[in-house]
Every structure is written in C-alpha cells, then in structure tokens.
Design a protein around this nucleic acid. Structure first.
Lengths: 329, 329
DNA sequence: CTGTTAGCGCTTTCAC
DNA sequence: GTGAAAGCGCTAACAG
C-alpha cells in the first residue's frame, strides 16, 4: 500500500510522532531533523492521508456546494468565483448535483467543513429542514429562517430600475420576466415593480407586465417580439428580469430595427460583467456578482471555523448606468 | 458533536461492534436486533462517518468528476446521467470545477475511489501525466494513451451522416461546425467530412465547410444565415457539428421561411433526446447519450474495484433518421 | 527537543 | 449471535 508516517519514521530513525510534527512544520522539532525527515518523506514518495488527519483534527479543508440545477449562467459564474476565493484560503470546493437532501447527506458523510446550498426550490417551499451536523449556508431564499442565508435584495433592485426610468421621463414602462407565483425569487421582482410604479403614480396595466414561461433566451425573445410588434402600444422602456431575457429582447429589437436607447430604453436585472459586452452596453440593477461571491465566501469561512454568523444577509443592489437608457423624447 | 456508532450501541443496549455489523447489514446479526439497532440509529439521527470507515476499509464510495468547463449542455446532461447510474451502485458523485491538476489533487486528498476527467484541453495536448494514486478515466481524448479513455467515434458519425445524405441524392452538402485546429475533437469531424465526401466522389469546396467561432447557438445562427442567404449557392443539405449549432441553423431557416426537409435537409451531430423535440425532429448521428453514460459508469465501477480495464473504448455512433432529411428533388 | 500514549469512528478478526 | 480487541493513519497531550 502507500507509504505512511510510520514507514518514514522507521526509515529516518525517529519516532512517528516526530515525523508528524515535522510534516506539520511544528516548532517543536529541530531544523536539522525536520529537514532530514522531509527529505526521507519525499524520497519515499510519502503522501499524507487526509482522511486520517481529518478524523482526529476535525478539519477537511473542503467546502461542499449543493447545486441541483446545473444550468443557469449566472450561477456557474458565481460558483467559479467562490471556488477561486476559497482556494486562496486553502479550501477545496466540491460540488454535488444531487437533490438537496441527498447532497447534504453525502457531504455529511465525507465531513466537509461547511455546505453552501443553491436550492432549486423544486416543489414546495415548506419543507422539513435537512439533517446536517455541518453548518449550512443558503443562497437566495430569505424565507428560510432556519439557516443562515445570503440573499440579494431583488425588490430593491427593481425599484431602483423603475425609479431611474421614471426620472428619465418614461411613462410607458413594461416589465418582462417570469411572473409565475411558483418562484418567490421572481415574485419579489414583480411585486416591487408594481409597488414602485404605483408609488410614483403610474398604473401597471396588464400589457405592461409580460410573463415569460421561464428565464431563458427563447422565451425572452418571443415575449419581447410580441410586446414590440404592437406599435400603438409599444413601451418606451423595458425592464428585463434577467440577463437571458435581455438577450432575447435585444434579438427582437434588432429584428425590428429599433434603436437603443432612442426608440426604446432597456434596463436589466443581474449585475454581471457580460451586461456590458452585449451589442449595446446595458444599464443594469442588481448586486455585483463579486459582492455576492465575497459575502458568501466570508460566511462560509466563518462557518467552517464554527463561528456564529448573522442569520440573513441581504445584499444591497446597485444601479449601473450604461448606454441603454436615455431620456424619453 | 455528532452521534457515533458507540452512542447508538449504548442506547440500543448492545456492543458497538454489533451496531457496526447491523449497519453493514451483516448476516451475523439477528433480524430482530438488526431492526432495533436500525431504528435507534435513525431516531438518534446517526450519520455514518465515511472518513473513519474508509480509513479501515479503503473504500470511500465516492467518484470524483473533473469538470473544468462548467458550460455545455451535452456535458451536463451526461454528468447527470452518470450521477444517477452511480447512485444505483451506492456511489456518490462529487464534482470539481478546478483545473485538471488541482482537481485531481483534491480528489486524491479525499481518497475517492476513481476519477473521471472531462478534460478541457486548455492549452496544449502534450502534457505531463497528472500524479494520482487513484485510477483515472478520461472522456473524449483518445490521443491520451496513458490513461483509460472512453471516446465517441466522431469521425464515423460524420461519415454516417454524409453517407445518408449522398444516398438521398444530395450533391451540395455543407458542414457547419467548429473548424479550428485547436480542438482535436472537432477536427475529427471535419476530417471525416472531407474524407467521406471525397471517397464518394464529391469535392469539398471552401464554401461547403463553414467555420463557426465556437459551438454555441449564436455562432451557429449567424453562420447558418450567411450560408442560406446566398440563394445561388444554397446547399440542399447541411450537417451541423453540434446540437447548439443546429438550434442556430433552425432559427435561420425559420427566418428565411425555408421548409424542412423539402427546401433543405438537416442532419446533426449529437445523439441526444432533445434532438427530437426541436421544431422539426432532427435526424442525428452520434453515440446515444445513454450508451456513453453506461460505458463510463461501467468503467468507473471497474476502476473503483481496482480491476484492470481496456485502455481505450471507442463507442460506435448510430444514425437516427427523423423527419429533417429527405430525398433531393 | 523527542518519544510514548491515547484516542478520532469505524471494520474486522477472533473468542465466547 | 454477540462482544472484546486490534488497528487503519494520523494528531495531540503528556512525559522524559
């Protein structure tokens, strides 16, 4: 089998606990013996066994991420960032694409230090709390009171957007997004849209609230086309519920040879770098991806150290004005 | 701390080694005591500690998947399938989105039983073999001679496609795909296209080989539009290099009000279920996703058991005729 | 400074 | 059938 600490000890002519110390770079060992042991270890091709180490030290240096829905651009970008940041603190990130419960179970079995859950909310929202001896952090569901959660304030973001457009003099503003009651995350946005419009003295008529079947490009495209083709009722400004919907809208705008922002202003939810790289740099609202990643990482680090953390962190969105919004003529 | 086998033993009034046996469903324990122990364990919320278990049994019941490029629909579908299949054999699948080397390192640290590598081939193809005490399985790069590899025979798939179209009487066949020399996987397809065309007495002119910037929908769409708009030179049949490119092509076809298959025949690489669910069910070539998943799973299972496996498995593609291909009028 | 001694939580002989 | 004992590879007191 593979070479252990004892083999190294025998070869180096010391006790195995000295080897352990030397490998841990403990100050309780002379530089000389330390060097010798390190040499022998390398020569023998010694590889530390993390399982054994963790068994006693209770530390795996590993974070588990529950990621049941492998799609969605925004999420993969987020995870990539978190992964990178955690690496700097010498943590490894491991993902599971299993259902939330069984993923958490798996991570419990291998004793990761903390678990980040991107819940896909499949089915109900009232659910039994998963059993986990390991600290959990949720992203995106502040309804959960049970576990610490990092969340973006979606409502506030949409308010910001409405505000911006109204101040630019827009009267006819349409929201395109997933207006189903299924997903509370999307609901927040819709509610905020209606509320802010009303509070600014604007009535939201049916045709100003467009429901897409989901959040992807295609439904964005077809919904947008419908909205824009009806010239008599064409809005002067559109708020899109996500990056992908915005891409769909842009396609429709292109096909109809409309000019942004002179014919139509566009503002999108999702504050991600890609927003600036579209045909027209799009004004956006939302919490910057990096801010989210930062907070999540920080919380995970605290949890891994078994420190208590505040239960819900709701991140403040920002408005980034690019060239897709202008005064209403 | 979390509840251990000893806690359960005390509570159930048996020795802890009996508990161990009961949990492992050993025949050395009476059904009755077994049931009792299982109940107590559940009530106490016992979670087995895989680290401790592996320390003695040398088995983690975990497969690591190296997945450096988190995008690509085909891959996520594949991984989902593999995950499900492995679950049936009571293995847990864990993913890492780190670079190949550091992902393999991480999996070595937590002692998974086998590692599946979806190499992103970033940079060179000549690279040093990663150090790993754990058996590796590669997917998609038969150039690698060092490690066992499961691969789809892409060239043969494209040959099948060309053959099919030629036998339907098509003269002007165009291939749309990623024709860069960067990715040997794509290169295989292009080569096979040219070779098969030639062997059937057709010359491949420049305009019959369309290079997209990558494999996604957008580049597929714009490339396709270019090809189709030039009426004098419009092909009677198109072979698409991937599912996403096909989606792009379909969009272009739609916009130009062409009919499939009367105006144009379409055949696509990638044998996945989605192919049948497009606007027009698309004739496709490739290895069925499930076949790939099956083989990979089988190989991983063997590797986990430390069994030797054949070095390269090249899976045979199939032609599935749907309604997108017809005789050339 | 170095070695000895206990375990971490579990599986697996081997007695009873 | 069940329990006692040893040990997986390692860390962390504790003595010397």
């Amino acid at each position: 089998m593979s070479v252990t600490i004892k083999d190294v000890a025998k070869e180096a002519g010391v006790s195995f606990s000295t080897v352990s110390k030397a490998l841990r770079n403990s100050p309780l060992v002379t530089e000389k013996t330390k060097r010798k042991i390190l040499n022998v270890a390398k020569e023998m091709g010694y590889q530390p066994n993390n399982l054994a180490r963790s068994l006693v030290s209770k530390k795996m240096w590993t974070i588990g991420v529950v990621w049941p829905s492998v799609e969605r651009v925004t999420l993969s970008a987020l995870i990539t960032q978190i992964n990178t940041k955690l690496e700097e603190y010498s943590y490894t990130t491991l993902l599971s694409i299993n259902k939330v419960d069984s993923a958490i179970e798996a991570f419990n079995r291998i004793h990761v230090d903390a678990i980040l859950v991107f819940d896909d909310l499949e089915g109900t929202f009232i659910r039994t709390a998963p059993i986990s001896n390991i600290p959990l952090l949720y992203y995106g569901i502040s309804d959960h009171q049970i576990y610490p959660t990092v969340d973006a304030n979606r409502g506030k973001a949409i308010s910001l957007a409405v505000d911006h457009l109204v101040h630019l003099g827009h009267e006819h503003i349409t929201y395109i997004g997933d207006v189903s009651t299924k997903d509370p995350l999307q609901e927040q946005k819709v509610e905020a849209f209606i509320k802010t419009m009303n509070s600014l003295g604007k009535t939201v008529e049916d045709h100003m609230l467009i429901r897409t079947s989901d959040m992807d490009l295609y439904s964005g495209y077809s919904s947008a086309k419908e909205v824009l083709q009806n010239e008599s009722r064409r809005p002067t400004a559109v708020i899109c519920g996500s990056y992908d919907i915005t891409r769909g809208l842009l396609r429709a705008v292109n096909e109809l040879h409309l000019k942004i922002p002179s014919d139509i202003s566009i503002i999108s939810y999702d504050h991600i770098p890609q927003m600036a790289e579209l045909d027209v740099p799009i004004t956006a609202v939302g919490v910057p991806l990096e801010t989210i990643a930062d907070h999540i990482t920080k919380q995970l680090l605290l949890l891994s150290e078994k420190k208590e953390i505040s239960n819900v962190v709701s991140l403040d969105p920002e408005l980034i004005i690019r060239t897709s919004t202008a005064n209403n003529r």
